[in-house]
């Protein structure tokens, strides 16, 4: 069981625990209220950016230290984790109210201003987000539970990864639907090793069923699936897999299944990408 589930799950997955969605968590905690209120306001003051900037040109040692600090900061304030489509549907039944807005990451990283709404926000965050219309230039679109479920299923078919987000852990106020590298979180996680937990599952391919079509290879946002030309089939690097289940959705043969991370001895405590110094080959 992951640390979050042990501390905040009440016997379940932490993100399926109804308690982590109630508005009282914000109302009764001044620090959290402040964080939620300022969330949309702080995009230009983002701490991670300042640190990256200060480290360019960087020294290896300070890079490792700062990355470790950042990892802790995100675990405390704004941690994400990929969730499978089944669990995302469950989350839609628990969270309320739900609305969708434009994605700030796509705007910030790729100047994407198409008006397509990708992000699902819940509860108190919706009240505060209206103060900062950069976040919501085309408005906030409320969704019913059924509409929200249709929305996440559609995004799953498009090949986007669902991630669940805390606002001062363990309060949950958002589900993002992302891809690499337009998502700040996936970006930060893969290149620098913080901000996103690995998921509770790991994908496994049944080689007997795989016909080597390669659909899953191009879908994987984490670079975990490769095509082996010798056997003519795809395989998953389980160390790299985040357990989002996007590959499973496109497999016509039903060759991909999700296995509990806890059932795999070497992966049961594998929650983060190793911190690396880019280009140096150094690992932690």
């Amino acid at each position: 069981m992951c640390k979050f589930c042990a501390e905040h799950g009440a016997g379940k997955r932490w993100y399926l625990n109804t308690k982590n969605y109630v508005d009282e968590m914000v109302k009764n905690d001044k620090e959290r209220e402040e964080f939620v209120r300022n969330f949309a306001a702080t995009v230009e003051k983002d701490g991670a950016y300042r640190i990256l900037e200060a480290l360019t040109p960087f020294k290896s040692e300070s890079w490792m230290d700062r990355s470790r600090e950042l990892r802790e900061w995100y675990i405390y304030w704004h941690q994400g984790q990929p969730v499978t489509i089944e669990e995302t549907k469950e989350i839609m039944k628990i969270a309320s109210p739900i609305a969708k807005v434009e994605c700030l990451c796509r705007r910030v990283l790729r100047a994407e201003t198409g008006g397509e709404k990708y992000c699902l926000l819940f509860g108190m965050l919706l009240d505060y987000i209206r103060d900062w219309p950069d976040f919501t230039p085309t408005g906030v679109e409320p969704l019913t539970v059924d509409e929200a479920i249709d929305e996440v299923v559609r995004r799953d078919r498009e090949g986007l990864v669902h991630t669940v987000w805390t606002f001062k852990t363990p309060y949950i106020a958002a589900v993002c639907q992302c891809a690499t590298p337009v998502c700040l979180a996936l970006r930060q996680a893969l290149d620098f090793g913080y901000m996103l937990h690995k998921g509770e599952y790991v994908g496994v391919i049944d080689t007997a069923k795989c016909d080597g079509c390669g659909e899953c290879v191009s879908r994987c946002q984490f670079g975990a699936i490769k095509f082996d030309p010798v056997i003519g089939k795809a395989y998953i690097d389980m160390w790299k897999c985040y357990g989002c289940g996007v590959c499973r959705a496109v497999c016509d043969r039903g060759a991909i299944s999700m296995r509990e991370r806890q059932s795999i001895p070497e992966l049961k405590d594998e929650w983060f990408e190793p911190i690396k110094v880019p280009g140096s080959g150094r690992w932690e």
Binding site: Y49, V108, L109, W132, P133, D134, G279
Partner: peptide, 24 residues
């Protein structure tokens, strides 16, 4: 990565500049 400048509560900001954040 792009950043807004002179942002004000309740208004849409159209001054977004960039920074080579991931320069490494």
């Amino acid at each position: 990565r792009s950043y807004p400048e002179n942002r004000r509560r309740g208004e849409i900001c159209d001054e977004w500049y960039l920074a080579p954040t991931y320069q490494v």
